[in-house]
Simulated assay, not measured.
Amino acid sequence: MHVDLPTLYYLVVGTLLASAALTLWEAQINSARRRPLRLLAIGYTTLAVGCTIATVRDHLFGGVGAASANLVIVAGYLLVWNGLACFVGRRHLIASLALWLLMLASWLLAGPQAQTAMWMYVSAGPIALICVLAMCDALSIDPDRELRARYIVAAVMAVHALTYALRCSLLPWWVSRHGPAGLLLAGWLTMYEGVLFSVVLPMAVLRLVREEAHGELLRDSRTDYLTRLGNRRWFFEESERLMRAKHARGPLSLLAFDLDHFKQINDEYGHDTGDSVLQAFADTARTVLGEPVVLARMGGEEFVALLPGRHGEEARQIGEALVRQFAAAAAAGVCGMPLAATVSVGLAQLDQDASSLAGLLAASDRALYRAKAQGGNRLELA
């Protein structure tokens, strides 16, 4: 089916405006990503305005139409770039302004005699550059998380960059060989790709935002709200995964923790102070245990840590260091007052004390009860 260029322009305009509306809607319900989504929506709208001007560029006074359309379109791409950069906390305001002013200067220097060459070939170069930069920012979005849409966004920007790079570099040669028919074909191909860009990029960004939100919900469901450690569910999932791994048959130790006389602290100083004690223990445990470790709050004042690659003697030294440092931290002051907060620890080792996770937990609990029975503030072996 043959579609003429003006129709393709209008199709791009329509999809960009629809994408801007959907992106603004998403911004209203996603406060965490409101700023980048709004920037992207403004960028899509600006691109739509630029494409609208492009459809009537030949009728504007003094040949200013092509320059006006291109400058508006470049501004739209710069807004899209900055919108994607916002996802990673970056700003490119100075670079964007410098690039836009450079394009403005190029159009002024080109003069009326070079308007066609500027529109057909030269103006494509900066767009290709902006898309490459936007692709790099897209690949930087939460690199430690599994966000497949990030790669779709980057791929769309890469294809768009390649399209305009080819237009800038190879189109003059193509037109010299094939004449007006070759130019018309190149225009169709560019606009068809533009239609895909105006649809796929916004949908990929919205998918990215949804993936982020889903990941946050999943992470919250596995995280203790007070200490920001893993919760009971997360501990069992991670521990089972770790013990199924091929390297899990190496040294593996488990430390069970219980804060001593915690109810007394709550009764005497209040639950706010008790919460601060729990947070202080979590912070101390993170520091002392280091990585790798599966550290979680099991509930109340009970914590547990699975230490892969640590044999019993090394785990004992780490556990005893934690006992000492937590007592010292509490004595130095929690909520502005020194407290006699201590912790009891039970240590169990895989194979030596138990052969399964359930067995490790049971063995470490028995050692923990012995530590508490002996006055607490100590570590006992299973």
Results as ranks from 00 to 15, higher is better:
329 A>Y: 05
53 I>H: 14
8 L>V: 12
73 I>K: 01
200 V>R: 07
56 V>Y: 10
91 R>Y: 05
324 R>G: 02
122 V>I: 09
117 A>S: 01
251 P>D: 09
23 T>K: 14
34 R>C: 10
277 V>Q: 05
227 T>W: 00
172 P>N: 11
14 G>L: 01
301 E>P: 04
161 A>W: 01
244 R>Q: 01
356 S>R: 06
7 T>L: 01
362 A>K: 10
139 L>Q: 06
371 A>N: 05
104 L>E: 13
148 R>Q: 09
52 T>I: 03
246 K>Y: 14
166 L>T: 14
194 G>N: 12
40 L>D: 02
375 G>W: 10
20 A>Y: 07
85 A>F: 00
139 L>D: 00
324 R>D: 11
171 L>G: 10
343 V>A: 11
173 W>M: 14
244 R>F: 11
184 L>H: 15
40 L>W: 11
1 M>L: 14
244 R>V: 08
37 L>C: 06
358 A>S: 04
275 D>G: 05
322 L>C: 05
335 C>T: 14
40 L>G: 12
141 I>C: 08
285 A>H: 09
128 A>P: 08
336 G>E: 03
177 R>S: 08
193 E>Q: 13
128 A>W: 00
147 L>V: 08
378 R>W: 07
360 L>T: 09
98 A>M: 03
339 L>G: 02
181 A>G: 12
268 E>N: 15
137 D>M: 09
231 N>A: 08
68 S>Q: 12
140 S>N: 10
223 T>N: 05
177 R>A: 08
231 N>W: 06
170 L>H: 07
59 H>L: 15
